[in-house]
Amino acid sequence: MKIIKKAANLLLRLALALIIAGIILFVSGYSPLKAYKAMIWGAIGNWNGIALSLVQATPLIFTGLAVAFANNCGVFNIGAEGQLYLGAMAAGVIGAYLPPLPHYLHLLLALLGGALFGGLWAAIAAWLKVKANANEVIMTIMLNSIGILFCSYLANYTFKASGPVAQTPEIKSTAVLSRLSTGTQLSSAIFLGLALIVLVWFVLYRTKFGYEIRIVGANPRAAATAGINVAQKITAALFISGTLAGLGGAGQVLGLHGRFIDGFSPGYGFDGIAVAILGGNSPIGVLFSALLFGLMRAGGMVLDRTTNIPVDFVLIIQAVIIVMVAAPELFKALKGGVKDVRTVVKQ
């Protein structure tokens, strides 16, 4: 009952968003119907479209899951973008520079490296929150800029491949996440994402650790009274969140680009926030909302390619949809959460 109501409400808001975006298009002299047809056709009209949508959805599964995991513990991780970059860079470097290794071992190391660096990057924010009571929202935003610029520096100087582009050398074939079908860009990174959905669900709802994480997220003062170490849980949750985002970056490098390319993410980390919130911070919800966002992105790309509608409109349509669909939940999420660790446990 509740789920049906929620879904109906969501569809209504989605329809409203499309109408508003349609009006904007119409006023600007373009045909909304044509535009939407192109988008929908491009996103699901044929196998290529579907593949494109899935390719776009893949990193969003990771970043959405990352943000959702932290939200379950009452911490708002806006820093998934930076963690994604760090993870991508680590995977790119490990993939390209390690001496020859057996295939799966090399791949595994590259993935682990991506996870670890994403996680550590997020853990800095956790550490500052727990030790100095810094606001994680501001910390993760600042770490975003630092992380992205740092990776850019590495791609421009330290690990730069020869050539005009700011990118690292191509990864060795032993570190590649295989493509699923020739002719598309879809890689097995999506299976990794699906596996993580199941794993995160299991951890959150079936383990004592997940139970404690969620109690901290829902009522940190009751959690502390129940003997749960709130600071430790927050740190763990942010670290895991960063790991998930980092894996998303690694997936892009090892499965799609074959190397770290400066500026490779069009904001997957930020979209992850909307994905998580739209998905109600549940792993299953994240899966569906990542797919929806993937469709939107793919549709937008096709729109850009096949019509004369300027690319800015694609962004406007996406923005209207995000505002209509995810913003109400976003505000709710911002209001809750562990605001001040010190009010929970007095030192």
């Binding site: 139970y211 109690i215 829902a218 009522n219 009751a222 502390a224 009274t225 129940a226």
Partner: peptide
């Protein structure tokens, strides 16, 4: 400090 209100009864029954 006692209960987590939007959690289920069983989740509250074992808290601590």
């Amino acid at each position: 400090r006692g209960l987590v209100n939007n959690f289920k009864l069983w989740q509250n029954a074992i808290l601590g």
